[in-house]
């Protein structure tokens, strides 16, 4: 039982990281119905920037991660303005090419500038051998609990921004109906730019948190990105809360449920953690087959 509780927390904290990246994907999808395949690359680069600020320049780690995320927000807003805005979002191919191009370039630059070997990365929370609380024999480590806390703060923050600020209102208007928003004078370009920056900031923070558990390398966000795709699909690609809950569900399936099935259900001994990617893929397939709008997404009516 204590082991199960411990794995639950592990699963929840993994899920929280998927959730944060999934929220970043959802923010961009909501406004433009595009999927940003460069999200993983941006998050990866943000983590490297955090590494530069915190480890090499000696700033406090939390400041480093936030600075890294802020740098990526600026980069993403530049990318949106220069590379994405000239294209009609209804035409998917150019934007897919561009986001993959950016992902390639970011990975190449990171591997060139920061090296190809794995780098360890500290956690912003106490992560020593004794930094944990014990509940019913289960060791709940602070570094794990901290990630869940960050997720909650981030989601609260995005709701505050979207519901209480002017630009948030504009963003909601643009995502609900771009044409009408334009007609009433919302500057759609600037609003989408803000959306990209916000999404990249989320990705950057997630990158800084994930790096502690996986180590830094130019491809460390790839796997996370796939899980986040699954999370966003499960929750509904246009629902921020859905993305969070989807992320948590996937984290729980991956960490506590999968080992239990492996250990207690006969015939499933082949389930290993490497298989999680396959599970994520099958989950996306299943969701699209059964409930394409996801758990919390709005069902889009297509006039066909």
């Amino acid at each position: 039982m204590s082991l199960f509780l411990q794995r639950m927390i592990e699963g929840l904290s993994n899920g929280a990281m998927y959730g944060v990246v999934a929220v970043a994907l959802v923010i961009i999808f909501k406004a433009t119905t595009l999927i940003n395949f460069a999200q993983g690359g941006l998050a990866m680069f943000g983590a490297y920037m955090a590494n530069v600020f915190a480890i090499e320049q000696g700033l406090p780690l939390i400041v480093g991660i936030l600075l890294g995320a802020a740098v990526m927000a600026v980069v993403a807003s530049g990318i949106e303005r220069v590379l994405v805005r000239p294209f009609d979002p209804a035409n998917h191919l150019p934007v897919v090419l561009i986001t993959f191009g950016i992902a390639y370039i970011l990975q190449a630059v990171a591997a060139w500038k920061f090296g190809t070997e794995f780098k360890s990365f500290p956690s912003p929370f106490p992560s020593g051998p004794n930094d944990h609380i014990e509940i019913a024999g289960a060791r709940l480590r602070y570094e794990r609990l901290g990630v869940v806390l960050v997720l909650m703060i981030m989601v609260g923050l995005v709701h505050l921004i979207l519901n209480k600020t002017k630009i948030g209102l504009a963003f909601r208007a643009v995502s609900s109906n771009t044409e009408s928003a334009k007609l009433v004078g919302v500057k759609t370009g600037r609003t989408l730019n803000f959306g990209w920056a916000l999404a990249a900031m989320f990705g950057g923070v997630a990158g800084g948190l994930v790096a502690h558990f996986t180590q830094l390398d130019s491809g460390f966000m790839d796997k996370i990105l796939i899980f986040s795709f699954a999370a966003a699909t499960l929750g509904g690609l246009d629902s921020i809360n859905g993305a969070v809950i989807g992320g948590l569900i996937i984290g729980l399936v991956e960490s506590p449920v999968q080992p239990m099935v492996r250990d207690y259900v006969p015939g499933f001994h082949f389930l290993t953690s490497d298989l999680a990617l396959l599970v994520a893929f099958l989950l996306i397939l299943a969701v699209l087959l059964v409930k394409p709008a996801g758990l919390f997404g709005t069902t889009r009516v297509e006039r066909v």
């Binding site: 395949f37 796939i226 082949f270 490497d274 699209l288």
Partner: peptide, 28 residues
């Protein structure tokens, strides 16, 4: 599953497939 719905869903599913396929081949 992906082609019943409009939009980038096929890209999403197939991208996940690209990552999942090598791990599938390495299953015990």
């Amino acid at each position: 599953p992906a082609l019943r719905i409009k939009g980038l869903y096929l890209a999403l599913v197939t991208f996940a497939l690209s990552y999942a396929f090598p791990t599938l081949l390495k299953i015990e």
